[in-house]
Design a binder for these strands. Structure first.
Lengths: 117, 117
DNA sequence: CGGGATCCGTCTTGATACTG
DNA sequence: CAGTATCAAGACGGATCCCG
């Protein structure tokens, strides 16, 4: 997402797409906490702001990692859901979480089974 | 590194430490390409600039993910090496690289065995 | 020459207020 | 509720300088 000078390195390219401060947290919210709506993401303790959230949701949609659907035909409520491609990031988030649990004190899994397969 | 409002989430905390545009690339250079000197990091195709590199090296030292030693007693040449804690990030970089290889076209491992255990 | 530090202009990010 | 507009703060890129 950040337009590094491109190299073919898969690590650099992946970080280029999702390696910023917020993107993976949005995916975490969807993947481990089942969040699907704009407001739910805003409630996370890290405190993403509305414009950043809107921007990241759009980027994730462009990357086809998430899909947006109207919640019903009556309201403006939107539903964001991970695509299969998005779900494929689970091992990435999982290993990041495992590292944090081991090397950063006072971290803990917030919800039972959050880091389960 | 970026002072998110703290949550105990291990994913958020880990991203807080190394989840920026450059930090993991420096670690990649050390881990997979064996780079150890300031100038070597500068040569990577992503093109980090000197002030950013100096900043990240210092942050990584503060986090005890790398160690800095004088190359010899005669010169100013410095040697940066991963600590055990730093090396523990290998699974993280590896899974990120594997994801990139699978989901981003035109990425490839740049050096034989780069993603090996 | 290698390893930075510093300054400065630009681009990106983010907090807040506001809108449909 | 789900965003957009605005504007300030911060991150970054590049040049330059500095020091051993």
């Amino acid at each position: 997402m950040n337009q590094l000078k491109r190299s073919p390195c898969p690590i650099a390219c992946t970080l280029d797409l999702v390696g910023d401060r917020w993107t993976l947290l949005v995916i975490r919210d969807m993947m481990f906490f089942g969040k699907q709506r704009f407001e739910e993401f805003l409630e996370s303790p890290e405190g993403i702001s509305t414009n950043i959230l809107a921007n990241r949701l759009k980027l994730l949609e462009d990357l086809e990692l998430i899909e947006k659907q109207p919640y019903s035909n009556h309201s403006r409520r939107m539903n964001y859901q991970l695509t299969e491609k998005g779900k494929s990031l689970r091992p990435v988030l999982k290993v990041i979480g495992i590292w944090g649990l081991k090397y950063i004190t006072d971290t803990k899994v917030l919800k039972t089974n959050s880091l389960d397969a």
